[in-house]
Design a protein around this nucleic acid. Sequence first.
DNA 1: TATGAATGAGGGTTCATTCAT
DNA 2: TATGAATGAACCCTCATTCAT
Lengths: 208, 208, 208, 208
Amino acid sequence: MLRDAIAEPRQEPRQEPRQEILRTAARLFQQRGYDATSMNDVAAALKLSKGGLYHHFESKDEILFHIMSHAMQITEDRVINVVRRIDGARVDAVEERLRTLIRLHIQVVLSPEDREITVMLHENHPLPPALRRKINARKKDYVHFVENLIAEVQRKRGSKSPVTPRAAAFALVGMINWIYQWYKPDGSLTGEALVQQYTDIFFRGAVG
Amino acid sequence: MLRDAIAEPRQEPRQEPRQEILRTAARLFQQRGYDATSMNDVAAALKLSKGGLYHHFESKDEILFHIMSHAMQITEDRVINVVRRIDGARVDAVEERLRTLIRLHIQVVLSPEDREITVMLHENHPLPPALRRKINARKKDYVHFVENLIAEVQRKRGSKSPVTPRAAAFALVGMINWIYQWYKPDGSLTGEALVQQYTDIFFRGAVG
Amino acid sequence: MLRDAIAEPRQEPRQEPRQEILRTAARLFQQRGYDATSMNDVAAALKLSKGGLYHHFESKDEILFHIMSHAMQITEDRVINVVRRIDGARVDAVEERLRTLIRLHIQVVLSPEDREITVMLHENHPLPPALRRKINARKKDYVHFVENLIAEVQRKRGSKSPVTPRAAAFALVGMINWIYQWYKPDGSLTGEALVQQYTDIFFRGAVG
Amino acid sequence: MLRDAIAEPRQEPRQEPRQEILRTAARLFQQRGYDATSMNDVAAALKLSKGGLYHHFESKDEILFHIMSHAMQITEDRVINVVRRIDGARVDAVEERLRTLIRLHIQVVLSPEDREITVMLHENHPLPPALRRKINARKKDYVHFVENLIAEVQRKRGSKSPVTPRAAAFALVGMINWIYQWYKPDGSLTGEALVQQYTDIFFRGAVG
DNA sequence: TATGAATGAGGGTTCATTCAT
DNA sequence: TATGAATGAACCCTCATTCAT
């Protein structure tokens, strides 16, 4: 133990090249699709040989899994953890939490540097079952978090809405996640406008 | 002989085999993903040789394209055309149109026998650009139809909502289309419940 | 016997469709090459189904063989038989025979309606050995005929040329057959000019 | 170890495998024809997997193109460049150039180790248009070289022959290139005899 | 005769992965 | 670590041929 710490200070593989591979692979997977992207493509984009790639990741599956894990991590860090930190003592804190979640979730989906999000949203099929289950569990946790938050807001508001938090959570997550299917950053709709629109729709309906 | 002559009055030029191929292919594409399904798989599922498959379709791409076209056709037939037929003279006809659209769109997405819908929603990447553009044009038309319908409802209601029909249309279509990603037919949420929940959310918000 | 002749007056397959198939196939084989032309291509060009084609010919090989046979027939009819008919009694008849052979052979190679010639010259490989041997025998006979003719001319002229009739025959046949590789009908060199040039070259050399 | 270090001073970046592939492929293409030779055949002859073959060449087309390029290179190196080096000052140098060209060209066609020559002469069809144009340009250059040489000889000789250098060049090239269609190395006609025969025919005619 | 459906073998090519160097 | 060569399975597709109708 001690010997290891001294004699081999850097036993674990360096993290930077792995990160760069994941970033590049995520970009390619997003642009062309996972199946249409070969390990050759990834290696070439990194100016690396195919063999070199396999020194960092055991398989293409593993790369996809790490991209998805990273995407979940980003979501948890930049949405859930931030929302959790909002002070619950204030009177309208709960509602602010929900509004913040909507805003942050949309920002994550729109963030152009986070290609892994789109990959996570789209590439469910190729992942081997065992790994898919892991990702799905985290996705489910996310929806649960949203569901609980919605329930809290309804409670705080004394809402008599027939809408169940569960369905509301799926609706919210669905309308936000679907954004990657149609949103063009150079279109007329800015990210901020989208946040306000979707917040309004979710809180007050679209035709009120 | 005579029996045949009576029972099968004429051997009309068979369009069926194409339909059966599309049905089977759609099922496999939905289950395993387009890229993960080989023409061999499709042929085997049809108890046909690979070569026999190519007697009916020129390429795997073409099959995918026809599946997607068919999915759009279903959507247009079973949602748009039905909605259009609702009598516009009645005082609340416009709102009923929108409610009907939500219901029918959800039913189409949930319909277990229409595998092509899911394929259309998911498999954008593999389609060659020229064919993809055709499908995308029809998808865009659909969203426009929804957008116009929402605008009408807002007008009829004298809505002062800051929500634009465009954003509302994307939100609605997104939350419905996303259903295929999580819905389990054997779960606790029935299709009809889902319709009511989503309608409420869209008309009055989720926490009102 | 008698019965046959009466009851089935046209026992043998009609010849016309076979001829048309051969003509069309020869054109396609010449344009695209034998291997690059599928039976489908041939059938389509004839506005015939693939199955229909096989009622007239047993195999693609057989078509190629008949094309080549026909090409040999043309050569024999339009070159050898004509040359043979030139009256041998006249004093310079032998030399005229050779000049005529050169002219007719070139005309056959250049004849735009006789696609089978080019096919015969080019497509040796695809023919099955047994059939190839048949064609090759006739090709050999042709060269022999040329060789004998050249020998006669040399004898009549009392030539002391060291050139053997055999080599001369190959040279003559080679330079004429090769024409299909480079000749463009719309170029500056007319067929008649080519005849005169090649005749001169063969009789008196190219730089005399 | 030490032995190795001495015997094989350095493992230079291997260009050999490509050369060996081209050599083997040329042999097979010549024997069976390009279309009748599969990549499997080539790989098997090299004791290589099909996939391994594609490590060195991108496509079958590319292999054919390189074979043909190499054939043209051989022709240019062993015929044109040698002929060009013949001293032009001597009085009969021009005629010697032409005689040398005939000899060297024939030797190239007869050379049993240069299979690519035959392939280049025969396999025009399979090459994609873009590549075919490149090869054809070099072929044309060759004929032009021959044409110019013939013109020079005629000039030097003060020839009054009606034979144009252009037609003479085609005739010469044709009769030589055609050799591959009939020549048997084990026949009675030696290469050297063939050279003398063809030279005589071309300079003085076959029946003079 | 003619058709259209079907077959089965094989075509060229791709690709994730392995491994000696 | 990194490379380049190699593998072997699979992929989409083509094609000569057959056969029931």
